[in-house]
């Protein structure tokens, strides 16, 4: 179907990388440790990044490496902060509606796979004379400048939104005002409930959360 010329080595490398991407992607949801899960996902991303480099998208492939390395590091940190059992020393299976999820996953694969097998796509490979990195740069800072700048603006908005959401205090008092955490045992004291302030009235006390 395609007419791109590449050697046997590229095919072998692709097969190995594809297997690695799928197996590590699957292991993400089958490992006991949350930290391991995020690094399995990183390996899956890196395998896809190398495939992109094989496809001559040299900037995108390498960009995958550093984008995902930082993202998954942050993810692993959050795992350790919020999850029970980050080290995976105990077996763990935290799933709901698993049958429906498996069905939806398989259905998604079958539909998309059928499209890949049955549909015919135009055979127009990248011309050999094209410099992919230069072409991407010219597009981002040329015709698609508006899209690129909008993405930057959305990222800035995200940063502000994230600070607002995760900051401890809002305009009308503490961010957790009025919410009651669930009890440690039925009817017991809420988990992590801030201690009563001995300063009494006087308003702006800090909640002593230590996560």
């Amino acid at each position: 179907m395609e007419s791109m010329n590449h050697g046997l080595g590229v095919d072998i490398a692709f097969l190995l990388l594809a297997t690695l991407a799928v197996v590590t992607g699957w292991r993400v949801f089958r490992t006991d440790s949350m930290v391991r899960a995020s690094f399995f996902l990183l390996v899956s991303f890196i395998a896809v990044g190398v495939i992109m480099i094989l496809l001559a998208a040299e900037y995108l492939g390498v960009a995958m490496f550093f984008m995902m390395a930082v993202e998954m590091t942050v993810m692993a940190l959050f795992m350790v902060m919020f999850m029970m059992n980050p080290a995976g020393l105990n077996p763990m299976n935290m799933v709901h509606q698993e049958r429906i999820a498996i069905g939806a996953g398989v259905a998604g694969f079958l539909v998309l796979g059928a499209m890949a097998l049955l549909a015919t796509f135009p055979d127009q490979p990248v011309p050999a004379s094209l410099d992919p990195v230069r072409s991407l740069g010219n597009e981002m800072l040329g015709d698609s400048m508006l899209i690129f700048e909008s993405a930057g603006l959305v990222l800035l908005t995200t940063m502000i939104g994230v600070v607002v959401l995760s900051s401890h205090r809002g305009r009308y008092g503490a961010a957790a005002e009025g919410s009651m955490p669930p009890g440690l045992e039925p009817g017991g004291d809420p988990a992590g409930k801030p201690e009563e302030d001995e300063e009494g009235e006087g308003g702006h006390h800090h909640h002593h959360h230590h996560h």
Partner: peptide
């Protein structure tokens, strides 16, 4: 052709 970016990824992956 993107070796400068590759070095940046080496630094990021070193953190991991």
């Amino acid at each position: 052709v993107t070796s400068v970016v590759l070095w940046g990824s080496v630094e990021a992956l070193a953190t991991v």
